[in-house]
Design a protein around this nucleic acid. Sequence first.
DNA 1: TTATTGCATATTGTTGACAATTTACGATAT
DNA 2: ATATCGTAAATTGTCAACAATATGCAATAA
Lengths: 224, 224
Amino acid sequence: MSSHDAIALLRTQSLTNLVHEELEQRIATGQLLPGAPLREAAIATDMGISRGPVREAFRMLEERGLVMFEKNCGVRVRQLDLQQATQIYQVRIPLEGLIGELVTRTLTSEAGEQVRQVLDQMAEKVAHQDVPAYTELNFRFHDLLARFTGNAALYDTYRRLVVQLKLFRSYTFRHDPETIGISLQEHNAIFEAITSPDTSLAGELLRRHAEDSLTRLCAASGSA
Amino acid sequence: MSSHDAIALLRTQSLTNLVHEELEQRIATGQLLPGAPLREAAIATDMGISRGPVREAFRMLEERGLVMFEKNCGVRVRQLDLQQATQIYQVRIPLEGLIGELVTRTLTSEAGEQVRQVLDQMAEKVAHQDVPAYTELNFRFHDLLARFTGNAALYDTYRRLVVQLKLFRSYTFRHDPETIGISLQEHNAIFEAITSPDTSLAGELLRRHAEDSLTRLCAASGSA
DNA sequence: TTATTGCATATTGTTGACAATTTACGATAT
DNA sequence: ATATCGTAAATTGTCAACAATATGCAATAA
């Protein structure tokens, strides 16, 4: 890292932010599972810092709905039951519709190209039946769409919900080698829609896409 | 306060939470205006506590989008420009639709009665041309609806956005003695809708209600 | 007069220590 | 054997002090 980068880092980053990002990453990737306790002292000494910044990061994670404080008992990664996951999906569905409408209007050619690249990679993962990699790209696809709406409030709101969904135990098992093929087709249709002049089509597709995800989630959860 | 209450308080509340609630209240009521700096030491000594809990509360407020950290420069109440407020409304509109649909299905008679009471008070304030009191009741009306959907994720998401809107300077001036009359009629119609068997009507009305609010906000902001 | 340098002050970022509470475990009495 | 009490360890909640950075002002030089 150049000294210029180091200066920029020190100017913008605090230990609290670093801890926050690290822990959110661990939660999102499943390194930290729902229900797992987070001990301040252990994390602080692991990272070679004091407990203050760790506690501040905990508060940020709490507000994001990723951990829960139990006074004098510590912090745990939040657990979501099926009902809570369903309720989050209920909120997500109309937001997907809005994302579709807005992104269809605002998408630039460079942004569209970026989405297409993700889509190409998804097709490759389907061909190789690589479900974990496909799942990650799937997440990136929808994240890009939300970001390219240019509406920061929408992106924040959307991202909040999506990250919280990862706290539902069955969420990781949404896809298998069979369903990713169907999923890819849906994503292709969505891409066509957002690059078309029809402003309502993509919204409709994305809404239905989210509804289908919810259905699959309930099915997988019911049988588990 | 009884000792029982005191025990319950100590068991669930931390200084951090108290500071957080106090500051959010001050921001929401306009005691702390957008752009105002928040000094850790001053708040801590004012409340007779140390800076630690204050900093933790700051982090929570940051995640709620109510304050902004500028490293080594302190924390300020966030300022919203018209575009940001518009974007928040864009997200709010479909959520209002969802709230209408869900609350129509789930509203109990006791909950409905609570909403009616607020509505009665609103009518009274209109008769007395008490705009500030009406504005507060208006907020409570919509807050109740969101809560009575029974969807915690929806309520959190909705409340986040609504509180953030208060950071837009012209937001307080949405209403005047003329418009609260019209507003009251709209709320009456909404109440009728949520107590009717038509599950889509309330959603439609609430969506339009939010759209109108946005229009009024832009108009007021443009002329200011 | 204006711009710049340097210092004093104020504020934030971080740390380590102390107080309070919970949890676990063993001793004791029934 | 079981239940209860009490102590010890671990963990969190809070605090006060230290270090680093930014801000404001005065002095100085062009």
